[in-house]
Amino acid sequence: MVQDGDLDIVRRLAHGDGAALGDLYDRHGRTVFALAARILGDHGEAEDLTQDVFTLAWRNAAKYDASRGVVAAWLLVTTRTRAIDRLRSRRVRPRSAGASEILRMDAIPDTAASVEMIVASEQMAARVRAALETLPPEYREPLNLAYFEGLSHSEVAERTGTPLGTIKTRVRSGLARLRQAMDAGKER
């Protein structure tokens, strides 16, 4: 199980084993980076954010409590939270004209992650993407706005001109449908 390997890594990190951080990155760096890039829309910022997340993992490894949640999930929640914070501080302080908006297309991909982990993760990603496609747009949009832009239900309602109650129902139903589709796909 992914979590067992991750727990070993966290234990090593907690004991000050710096090499363990590279191992953690090899297992989860792509997912962290991809999520950061999706939210921030900029590869340079996504790199900075990835560095922030792994820095936090390193700094706070000794405080990790396995009963509170899965390491991989923690990494993604932290990535999203920090990315949304950056998005918000952009809104407060518009970025300077010099900031790079262009996604870097010349990056050499990092190939250190194990084949099995990539395959499993891609299968899951494919299942969820397929499930998302089955969601009608009026269900998908509030979910995307809430998740990838950090909007509260009220903010989503305002942005889309839809009543708050409708948004709440759609987010909840959308997530439930997504969950069913994910689980149905797994049984095949």
């Binding site: 980076f33 991809a34 969950r179």
Partner: peptide, 27 residues
């Protein structure tokens, strides 16, 4: 769990190898 899956459904983009160098330098 569902939100975690949403996080993993984003378009696949590959970080540059140089990012790994920055990460391993953190400790």
């Amino acid at each position: 769990r569902t939100l975690d899956a949403l996080a993993r459904s984003v378009p696949e983009v590959h970080p540059p190898a140089a990012l790994r160098d920055r990460i391993v330098a953190i400790p």
